[in-house]
Design a binder for these strands. Structure first.
Length: 326
DNA sequence: CAAGCTTCCTGCATGC
DNA sequence: TGCATGCAGGAAGCTT
């Protein structure tokens, strides 16, 4: 399940291969992988997410994407939370800036393959790219469960004038894909505002787990890293935000950064083989999980059995002794 | 504005 | 064996 560390591994893996490359051809095999793509000439009236596409609209969307992505020259990939995008070179200096946007959902993969490689499973969209030094490559978007998607999306200026997101060594302009406008900065972003997160969280009555998953407060956190950060902070997932001190929330952010950094160093978490890097390889952080997916196993701190409680149609995992609700 | 629910989707595990 | 059911997840877009 790609969360911030997994998306960052993919972004970094993509960078050397796509920066400066030109898209020479495109094939949309399944238009459902274009959920976030809005065809030019206005909205097709169908919105994106949560709408089953009638066949005609799906075909229009696929054709529009294939036509417009072909010939584009790609820039340096950037990321904010779980959203990732590659700016595309403008045809005219005055033209509006656009990007190729990717969200991996929960099973999306971006795979760099040799042009002669056999198909991976669930390839939904294929781009053939030509790089000045690496030659011709395939960039395949594979996605079993179709919660992810690619799109061409306009870039808009960031309200704070700071870079749109993280781009490794490359400088990221102060632009953000329109679809990521409501996504907060992530904790690894130097422009993330700890005080603003703390203040927002303390205004809310929802449980801290819920708040960590709210991408408008802090981005990049999913079910795995929310549970892991809360385990480290010894915080019960249902503790209301407004009952947590500013100091404890600041501490939680620091621990979240620690978990992210360690996961990144291990190449991410490949919990059920859904996540792989651009070469199809799994990450190793699942070995170091303390709470997520460890129901009934002993807590690494105190030996008490980890509990699983239902939460918003999924699960929270925590140690009932270390993480008390008071 | 906040909070809760539903929707999109497939593959695997479980139960009868 | 074969079928039905449940579950996993992110984020948008509803309603309350």
């Amino acid at each position: 399940m790609p969360e911030l560390p997994e998306v960052e591994v993919v972004r970094a893996g993509l960078a050397p291969a796509v920066t400066g490359a030109r898209v020479v051809a495109a094939e949309v095999r399944d238009p459902r992988a274009l959920k976030r793509h809005v065809p030019l000439g206005g909205d097709d009236g169908l919105g994106g997410h949560g709408v089953t596409l009638p066949a005609e609209a799906a075909a229009t969307r696929a054709a529009d994407f294939e036509r417009r992505v072909t010939g584009l020259t790609l820039g340096s990939p950037a990321r904010r939370g779980k959203f990732m995008w590659v700016p595309v070179a403008a045809e005219r200096p005055t033209a509006e800036p656009w990007s190729l946007l990717a969200h991996l959902g929960m099973s999306g993969q971006l795979l760099l393959r040799d042009t002669t490689a056999l198909d991976d499973r669930h390839v939904r969209i294929r781009l053939w790219i030509e790089h000045p030094t690496h030659g011709e490559l395939r960039l395949d978007f594979a996605d079993q469960r179709l919660f992810g998607s690619l799109a061409l999306d306009r870039l808009a200026p960031t309200p704070d004038g700071a870079p749109g997101g993280f781009g490794g060594d490359a400088e990221v302009p102060a632009l953000l894909p329109v679809q990521a406008a409501r996504i907060a900065r992530d904790p690894l972003d130097p422009h993330f505002d700890d005080a603003e997160f703390v203040a927002s969280a303390r205004r809310r009555g929802s449980g801290i787990k819920q708040l960590l998953l709210d991408q408008s407060l802090v981005s990049g956190v999913g079910n795995i890293y929310a549970d892991e950060a809360l385990w480290r902070a010894r915080m019960h997932p249902e503790t209301p935000g407004r009952r947590i001190s500013a100091a404890r929330l600041t501490e939680l952010l620091a621990l979240l950064r620690d978990v992210f950094a360690q996961a990144l160093a291990e190449g991410g978490t490949s919990f059920d083989e859904q996540y792989v890097n651009v070469n199809g390889q799994a990450g190793y952080f699942s070995r170091y999980l303390h709470s997520y997916g460890r129901t009934a196993e002993p807590c690494d701190r105190c030996g008490t059995k980890i509990e699983r409680i239902p939460f918003a149609g999924r699960s929270s995992h925590f140690c009932p002794k270390c993480q008390r609700l008071r």
